[in-house]
Nucleic acid binder design. Structure first.
Length: 502
DNA sequence: CGAACCGGTTGTAAAACCGGTTCGGTGCGTTACT
């Protein structure tokens, strides 16, 4: 088949980007396909073009509502009308109508949670599904186990839908992510297109700084000098906001914070402003990034380290999608690793909480499967977050243990295992960040991800030697801002001194 | 671990200080209530 012809016909492009043609060919051959393509290569085109060349409908699983809306818009801009995002933005009536006329949609977007609804599975099962797509498939691995368990149930859903031809798309090409998704999706045979996780145009730097205060000062200094735009990652919503305020006070404009606790409206606005250059710097938590299509991000700074190297890689990977030289800096203070450990632990229910729940069941002589009416009360009394509770409920309900006691015993073991895995990952991240350093950072990452590629990269990392000044802004913009600020501060100091002496 | 907050102490008035405690990230859907 002349794929280029169809590419031009449907999308008006004349040539494919890295990996696209191979992936599409594999799908059209009827093979389940795992595509781990580098960021910014146009992964969605893989299912869009395949969609036009395959019979039947295309079902796309997407992790974020905003991502779904983007994709729907993109398709509609391209003249495709038979698209629907099946999610909570629809009213009851709209949902009902959409289900009734499901066959008139070519592209159907869904969240994994929506796919747990029996009525939706039933209606989808009656359709002819040409391709089942899991977008951002690393979510299975990174979110499935505790945060969004419905990701791990996609395999069952696939089976119920009659094992449709499947495509998994992601940019996080690590062996572990791949294994997780093969196992949970239950693909028997598949083709895979996996590209290196290495991004040679991103220089890697870790700076060890002894105190929190010094780290803040260093951050301000970096921001003042580095050529933007850039993202600064924090592991706390509060700190991200405080830093945005501090940076503004220090004369740095076009800065905003972004985190999951903010209003949906302002989140969209900030994202748009960043995309269009009205904002230069985002002080963000891990909520920021997925689906951000901005090519010219010049640096990513981590004020806190993430909970695993996979996340680190994903976050720094948002820099330099245009292929130009970019920088990733991790600011590390000894003791920083405590925060990730804390976060990991607080996500899982504690032993005491599990014991409490167990006692509740014993006292109330209630079957685990009949918990629904008491659910909210029990959850509240045990002091569990909804994530923690869901994890417990999921496990208890799906267990085949012979007794309540046995069921809870296994639950405790399971949670303990999860904790160990999380700790191990944090430890690996920590080992990469903390001194003593002996080895090239890039090699160390590649080794962790089981790639044995030896590459020579210019300005590779702080170990191989890096010229930070080459990432500094060459315009005088920042300098002027800095001068203005110093003058202001100077004046303030003078006033303060004269106030005291009076 | 560090930051923020709370409540009690200090020593006579108000703010400063101390010690203890709590909290810290990612999102879908539904439902009850403003």
């Amino acid at each position: 088949m002349d794929l280029e012809f169809h590419l031009e016909k449907h999308f008006n492009y004349t040539s494919f980007r890295v990996g696209q043609k191979e992936v599409i060919t594999s799908i059209l051959d009827g093979k389940h396909t795992i595509a781990m393509l580098p960021t910014g290569t146009g992964k969605s085109l893989c299912y869009q073009l395949s969609g036009y060349l395959l019979k039947g409908q295309i079902v796309i699983i997407s992790p974020l509502l905003s991502l779904m809306q983007d994709q729907v818009e993109q398709l509609m801009m391209n003249g495709e009308k038979s698209v629907i995002a099946f999610n909570s933005f629809l009213t009851q009536e709209e949902k009902y109508q959409a289900l009734l006329h499901l066959n008139k949609y070519k592209f159907i977007f869904l969240s994994p949670e929506m796919l747990q609804s029996e009525s939706i599975i039933k209606r989808l099962g009656e359709q002819q599904i040409g391709l089942f797509v899991i977008d951002e498939a690393h979510c299975i691995s990174q979110w499935g186990y505790d945060f969004r368990p419905d990701y791990l149930k996609l395999g069952d859903v696939r089976e119920k839908l009659g094992n449709p031809l499947t495509l998994a798309l992601t940019a996080t090409a690590t062996p572990e992510v791949k294994e997780d998704l093969i196992e949970s999706l239950g693909l028997g045979n598949w083709n895979e297109f996996i590209y290196s996780v290495d991004r040679p145009n991103i220089s890697l730097s870790v700076e060890t700084i002894s105190s929190y205060q010094d780290k803040t000062e260093r951050l301000v200094e970096l921001i003042k000098n580095l050529k933007g735009p850039g993202i600064i990652y924090f592991s706390s919503k509060k700190v991200s906001e405080q830093m945005a305020v501090l940076l503004k006070e220090r004369g740095i404009d076009k800065v905003m914070a972004y985190h999951g606790g903010m209003e949906q409206e302002s989140r969209v606005l900030i994202q748009q402003q960043f995309l269009h250059g009205q904002l230069d710097i985002i002080c963000a938590t891990s909520a920021f990034g997925m689906g951000i299509n901005k090519g010219n991000i010049r640096y990513v700074i981590h004020f806190h380290m993430p909970l695993q190297l996979e996340s680190y890689l994903q976050e720094i990977g948002r820099a330099g999608r245009d292929g130009l030289k970019s920088l990733a800096v991790l600011l590390y203070s000894p003791g920083d690793e405590q925060l990730p450990y804390q976060l990991a632990e607080s996500e899982l229910p504690s032993e005491a909480q599990i014991e409490w729940i167990y006692q509740w069941f014993v006292e109330h002589d209630e079957a685990v499967k009949n918990i629904e009416p008491f659910e909210n009360e029990v959850r509240r009394l045990a002091g569990l977050t909804d994530i923690q509770w869901r994890m417990i409920k999921n496990y208890l309900c799906e267990s085949e243990a012979a007794s309540l006691q046995e069921n809870f015993l296994q639950l405790k073991i399971f949670i303990n295992q999860r904790l160990q895995i999380k700790r191990k990952k944090i430890n690996e991240m920590h080992m990469w960040a903390q001194p003593p350093y002996e080895e090239c950072r890039r090699k160390k990452i590649l080794k962790y991800f089981k790639e044995d590629k030896t590459i020579e990269v210019e300005d590779c990392c702080d170990q191989c030697g890096i010229d930070l000044a080459s990432f500094y802004t060459d315009s005088d913009n920042h300098k002027t801002a800095e001068d203005a600020f110093d003058w202001k501060r100077h004046l303030a100091e003078i006033l303060l001194i004269s106030e005291r002496s009076e």
